[in-house]
Write a protein that binds this DNA or RNA. Sequence first.
DNA 1: TAAACATATGAATAATTGTTCATATGTTTA
DNA 2: TAAACATATGAACAATTATTCATATGTTTA
Lengths: 120, 120
Amino acid sequence: MENNNIIDRCEETCVHNNIVEKVDNNMPEDTILYDLADFFKVFGDCTRIKVLYALFESEMCVCDIAQLLNMNQSAISHQLRVLKQNRLVKYRREGKTVFYSLADSHIKTIFNQGLEHILE
Amino acid sequence: MENNNIIDRCEETCVHNNIVEKVDNNMPEDTILYDLADFFKVFGDCTRIKVLYALFESEMCVCDIAQLLNMNQSAISHQLRVLKQNRLVKYRREGKTVFYSLADSHIKTIFNQGLEHILE
DNA sequence: TAAACATATGAATAATTGTTCATATGTTTA
DNA sequence: TAAACATATGAACAATTATTCATATGTTTA
């Protein structure tokens, strides 16, 4: 006796199978969709957004960013790691100082589209 | 006796004040940056990404989407509410059924930029 | 009007995540 | 080489969030 109670009733009656099938055939691979969501997750934090906006203007060291955002060095460093792992920033070392800068050309387009949307 | 221990040492010595000041002057308003992060947060979930991709192909009812993604009706309905609140989808009622469709023209550009980035 | 059904929603839970604190790493300079 | 310093990182904690379950809302039809 299989228990099918968890399956909503509408699955049997309401579903428009032709539509579902057509859409299903055109969906990108699951791994791509997961990667995409993970990528956008990076933009879903205000600190990271601020860091990226700052780097639009100039390359900056960790301390500079920390002061600009009025946050401590550790928090910024953790977030820079996330940005680095997602290939959104690159860095160069100059003595003790590490300068970060933007590594991606899509960020500005994405931000502008987002801005257009929220300002509409 | 003020306690300044929480302030990292580098704030006093390493910070490049000219850069910080210049960048600070060009930063968008804080409220905009928060709104932007909140907006991108919507794309940071795989279920919502899938729903939006599905709606690229066709308008769909809640049950259709639930079946397509093999999730229950409640989960989909909750996520559609988030998308609705962020003005990314719109809906029309036809009897008992509610059909959802895309409400925004920026989504495709944003997704494509994201795809280009992760496939690079 | 009552039953059937598609969708919406509140509450609870589990999982994820941003920040802080403490400390480690790596570079410079005295 | 030791001290000073900029940055990185692990662990812990607090806050956020996606899903599920139970149930409510709103529409149709018998």
